Simulated assay, not measured.
Amino acid sequence: MQGFEHLEEELQQMKTDSVFRSLIPLETDQGAKVMINSREMIQLSSNNYLGLTTHPRLKLAAVRATDKYGAGTGSVRTIAGTFTMHEELEQKLAAFKHTEASLVLQSGFTANQAVLSSILSKEDVVISDELNHASIIDGIRLTKAARKIYSHVDMASLESALEASQDYRKRLVVTDGVFSMDGNIAPLPEIVALAEKYDALIMVDDAHASGVLGRNGRGSVDHFNLNDRVHIQVGTLSKAVGVLGGYIACPQTVRDYLIHKARPFLFSTSHPPAVTAACSEAIDVLLDEPERISRLWENTAYFKEELLKLGFDTGKSETPITPVVTGDEKKAHELSDKLADYGVFAQGIAFPTVPKGQARVRTIVTSDHTKPLLDEALAAFEKAGKELELI
């Protein structure tokens, strides 16, 4: 069909630049090893931090809920799509996060959009870290509020933005708890101190901290013992929690307001019973099996240390997200392809996901990886890195 020639040209240029990538279907469940094109490979690109996607308790909860309540809910929650299990999940999440209330949405992406597009107006200002997730950026685009960007984790830059914003009705400081491409942790104690100094609200996106940081995986706010000092916490149920969805942990007032004003909530059918029940069971697993988080961090420390010994640049990562930085975009994809040849699935990441000149292969180890598997992956990194003259 004619009319999309300009898109074809752009796609062709991506192929010329060796940055065009096709989707890669998995033929098995999301484990430490996966099957791709009938080949077994070590999985280092999944957000399945704790191995919960295949946890027997989650699978059983999903099956039982489907059998009892059906495959779907049939409506948005404000009309007829709220089940008792939705309310119970949100109450459990609020207790887990030490907040008054919580609200579950279809994804972490829509949760950020819901908050930012709903609670801010032209009388307000949102102040955002320059490396915040795309969902925060898009959420800010949907609001009429003024916006200011501060340099990444730069507290002097943040304070300057706060000082220049005192004439607005409300100031909302927004940051990732863990930054998804670099794996570094936001300096929340300093951010909270500045926000309190200037009477600003704070919103933390804990997508990559949920299930990873804090007691039993409660997130970065709990990690820094800042409960009751952060106004809104957004997170995902799709990564370490192992299922699907996003949540907003917040005061009851915010929850009530979002139910009436947040378009992603108002115009999306509620989570099916299987998803809701599995998410609820996942919270219980986080409480019952803290050893999964301990194992995750043991694997993380080992893998990072060995990559550094080999001579790779892993940036400023402090978490299981460990980038292997190549800088050059073509090189990142070449490294990913070489690793695949040697049985390791680790995706190359380039612009626009990361800034130009900061391309990398982004890896995530999980609690399900064994030391022999990590050693096998490290051997592949060493071989590929030497062939590409990266080390």
Rank of each mutant, 00 (worst) to 15 (best):
T54K: 12
S22P: 05
T269V: 13
G72A: 15
N227E: 04
Q252V: 08
T370I: 14
D199A: 10
L335Y: 10
L373M: 12
S151L: 02
M203L: 03
I24T: 15
V104C: 07
V365L: 11
I232R: 03
L307W: 07
E281C: 13
I127N: 01
L188S: 01
Q252C: 01
E87S: 15
K197C: 05
D167I: 08
G108H: 00
A65T: 09
K33M: 13
T353R: 06
D29K: 14
K309Y: 09
M35T: 12
E190Q: 09
P189I: 07
E88L: 12
V178P: 00
N216E: 13
L296R: 12
G311E: 06
L162C: 00
A146Q: 10
R64A: 11
A156E: 06
E123C: 08
D29S: 14
R263H: 10
L374M: 14
L105S: 03
N299E: 13
V275R: 11
L89T: 08
R360D: 00
R295A: 14
M1Q: 09
S18Q: 13
S336E: 10
I140T: 03
V354M: 00
Q2G: 15
P189K: 09
L244T: 10
A65G: 08
T143R: 03
D176T: 01
K239A: 06
A95F: 11
T326K: 06
T269F: 12
L237A: 00
L172P: 04
A359S: 06
L213E: 01
M85L: 14
Y168G: 04
R141T: 02
